[in-house]
Structures are given as structure tokens and as C-alpha cells.
Design a protein around this nucleic acid. Sequence first.
DNA 1: ATAATTGCAAACATTTTGCATCGCC
DNA 2: GGCGATGCAAAATGTTTGCAATTAT
Lengths: 154, 154
Amino acid sequence: MSDLLNRDAYVKRFEQFLDVKKMRKTPERFAILRCILAFQSHFTIEQLAQSLELQTYHVSRATLYNTLQLMIEARLVRRHVFEGLPVQYEKAGNTPHSHLICTHCGKLKEVRDNDFIAFMNARKFTAFTADFYMLYVYGTCNTCARKLKKQKTK
Amino acid sequence: MSDLLNRDAYVKRFEQFLDVKKMRKTPERFAILRCILAFQSHFTIEQLAQSLELQTYHVSRATLYNTLQLMIEARLVRRHVFEGLPVQYEKAGNTPHSHLICTHCGKLKEVRDNDFIAFMNARKFTAFTADFYMLYVYGTCNTCARKLKKQKTK
DNA sequence: ATAATTGCAAACATTTTGCATCGCC
DNA sequence: GGCGATGCAAAATGTTTGCAATTAT
């Protein structure tokens, strides 16, 4: 399914995508891509916009949303909506990982899970060809579990 | 994790939840619950509102959103945001199932997957206690696959 | 009785759109 | 040069909020 990509591979993939779609290779599009690659993990639109401003590269919201949509179609970026959190984006092509979301504090954790990856890679669906998947696990993180325990004993 | 519930079990669970939270058992809340139970599967806010209107039971948007939030906290309802689709709700407590989303036509399919359920039930996370999970598989449905094939040969 | 809940409409946050301008191909 | 892309501001969407009226406890 998705494979590890280095910086250049992302850029190349995006160029190819734009070629196929006969779309222009504008500096904005690549500035945004560069910026996304600099994020270690998840980011919000606001964080992305801020990050671009810091680089004294201004891009309008319209273009940001536009470009992110393109990148999602190009399978370079994924969009996540977790309960109670602002919309999160992340670059695709990293090691596949599951998302743990604490329903008490909203903390988000990524976990790599080789067994799960192996399981999913082997998994076939009838009348459907899988492209990529997302696993969201909701529950309680240790910090909140401790807090809840304390409250009870009070 | 989640178990099969019949109609009464949902109502009872909701009553218990309201008791614990010291919240009122208003007719609106139970009308909404009844309405949700009538849906076989996923539904949108609009569909829920319409369904309530048809029963000549008017409930304001504010109350709808409010109550759905309560039910999510009570683990009676789940909220899904799929790429390119309006926000979907579904009653929890059904047989666990994965979601297949076609990235071409947006069609949504639920699949029961015993192997996956077994896998997840056995799965333990470090420093995190899982409560429930959601698996979203994005890809291409057979109908779209056929269409795409035709286009290529043209 | 009284505090929680409701409905309404206004406010809000986020995303999309229309249009004039700009710049890649 | 021409069409696609951009920026801006305005609009649309989906959801939340404030407040007065209502109602479950």
C-alpha cells in the first residue's frame, strides 16, 4: 500500500500528478508542499498558514484549501476529523500507523502497529479494492485514567 | 467492547446516563432516541430532523445537536466524517463493522469482519485503554472500477 | 419552586465561491 | 497570449450560543 517517501519523492509525485492532470506547477503549490514536509506529524490549516507566514511566503486561504484538496487526491496528504479536535492533516506515505484519541483530554497519539499492517495488507474485500485505511481508536490515556481514579477515591 | 442492544436496552442505557449526570428525561430526548433507533444504519442531521418532522414532532437544531452530543458521550451514537460526505451518525451497539468508502462515487459500505473484530479485541495498547474503534477503508468500489476500465480502453 | 432544557435567531467558525488580476506554459 | 491559478472579500455551510419562555423534578 503506502510506502516510505523521502522529500524528493513527494515533490516528484506531486509534479507527476500535476502533469497528468495538466495543471500548473506554481510556486505556491510547491511552497505549501515544502511546508507540509517540514511537519513531523499532524498539523491544522492554521498551523500550516502560520508556518508559511513565518517563511514570509503568503498564501491565501482559498489556495491553501485548494492545494490541500489536490494533495489529498494525489494521495500525498490525508485529512482526519477526530471528535472534539480541529481538522487535522498529515502527509501520507509515512509508516502506516493507528491513531489513539483520548476522549477525556483529546490527546492524540500515533502508534505503529506491524501486526495490524500485516493484517490489513492481507485483507481482501469483496467488490472493493482498498487503497488506504485509517484506524481510529478512542479510549482513555494513562494520564486521564490516573486522574479519574483519584476522583473516585475522593 | 460493544454489544448488541435491543430497543429497550438503548432507552434504559440513556435513562441511566441521564440519571448519573443528573439531567432531565425530556420527551424531546426520547423522541430523538426513538427516531435514531428506527434508522437501519447511517443518517445525517438533516435526515434525522426530517424524520422527526414527519412524526409531527418538532425539535430545534440546537436540541438536536445537543442531544446527539449527549448520546455520543453516552456511547449510544457515533459520529463519522468521511471524505466528501456530509457528517454521518449511527447508533452504536450494533455488530462492529468496518467502513468502506469509494473515493470515486462516495458510496459507503459497511462490512462485518469477524477476523478484524477478534484482532482488535485481543489488541492491547501501551498507556492507553481502548473503548471503541473505527476503521475506514478508502478505495474503489466495483462499479467505479468497471467504469474506469471502460474509460481507459476508449 | 427552581434550575435545567428548549426554541429561536443571531453569532460563529470554517470552508467555498465569484471575480478581477496575475503568471505559468 | 491565453487559460489556469491566485488573492481577496463576500457568501455559504454547518454548528454553537445567548436569552427568554417552558417544564421536569
